[in-house]
Write a protein that binds this DNA or RNA. Structure first.
Lengths: 197, 197
DNA sequence: TAAAAGTCTTAAACTAGTTCATTTTTTTTC
DNA sequence: GAAAAAAAATGAACTAGTTTAAGACTTTTA
């Protein structure tokens, strides 16, 4: 069977944790929905009850909330080979507080709630896949939730730049500020200062 | 079969997500190690390669790192019915950066790395249990990692108090400061201010 | 390709949170 | 139950990060 590039990307992502037979691969791919999102348009908006989890095969999206003053707080940038969505809303069917907006024309696979459940029945190995995927994410988020309160903005910026050198160049400084948790003005100062060294 | 209180607690925790037969329950319990930790003593210290994940049946422990200045940053308080440990070190066998210290005499169950792997072979349903457990934790940590950068210390304190009213009374104000991510002095000011209302 | 909109920089005045030092209160230990 | 140790409160001087405002630069759109 010859797959297209996006199929190879997602199957490789899955093969990090579990092995699928060719039949299982095809079954799995049949449960996915292909989605295109144009730059500046939304994949999700606050208030939506989200029925999909997403895997990005091309492009870049920002996941963010707006606080009471309307200031954006970016919780992640999702690029190729990343999973994204709002898991809380996906699981509980409650309205999401998140916006997900494409910062570049993007291509995604979505898996619907119904197909996600079906997946575990049809190919129980996927329990293991998601167990390991969530375990890995959890390790990251535990670290990040500590850094948020224990590092200075400058330290968080340097960590982000080191960990995601490929993402830094694709996003605006303003969005980076929204992720680091500071104002664009202070972000500008930090970058000037760090680059001066 | 009549179980003791601690066994009932952990079996109930598991039954949130999966159903076990009595045989499976007994098999599962046989894979656990009972552990006691006296107040002020350590379950884990930075540098250790941790071989266990823990479930608390009695008591309270704090999980923390020390920064370069020796200041503690508390990442969680683990009380009855909570899971704790350092999943990163548990998975990768790298040295942990964490200390886990009992703040009260505590009783725990530990599951060793070997038995954790064995568990998935013997009772594959546990893939599902951990998938759902990690999914739930992940939802919490994603929220928390955003709050760390988007809320003020006072807002974080009020959130913590509301979410964990039972824990607030069991820990010192100093440890609470280490969790909120501020100095004990500023914690004292916030509490005075909030209580004055 | 010109106008409009958005992003980035700089600077001055401000606020949330830190540091350091001292005193009071509570908890632990023998 | 007295002495020692640790935790909590208070205040003054400080620093990291915000706010507001204005001008320069870059990107988007018609």
């Amino acid at each position: 069977m010859n797959y297209k590039a996006s199929h190879i990307l997602i199957l490789n992502n899955i093969s990090r944790f579990i092995d699928l037979t060719e039949l299982e691969e095809q079954k799995y791919l049949s449960l996915l929905t292909e989605i295109s999102v144009k730059r500046k348009s939304f994949l999700m908006q606050a208030g939506d009850i989200t029925s999909f989890e997403y895997f990005i095969t091309k492009g870049c999206l920002k996941v963010y909330t707006l606080d009471d003053d309307g200031a954006p707080h970016i919780s992640m940038f999702a690029v190729e080979d990343y999973w994204t969505g709002d898991m809380a809303s996906f699981m509980t069917k409650e309205p999401t507080p998140y916006f997900i907006k494409a910062t570049e024309d993007s291509e995604l696979f979505g898996i619907s709630r119904a197909n996600y459940e079906l997946l575990f029945q049809e190919i129980p190995k996927f329990e293991r896949f998601y167990r390991m995927l969530y375990q890995k994410s959890l390790i990251n988020y535990i670290k990040r939730s500590n850094h948020g309160i224990s590092l200075t903005a400058e330290e968080r910026y340097i960590k982000f730049k080191t960990k995601y050198p490929n993402i830094v160049n694709r996003i605006t400084q303003k969005d980076l500020a929204g992720y680091i948790g500071i104002t664009p003005e202070f972000m500008s100062k930090i970058i000037t200062k760090v680059n001066r060294r």
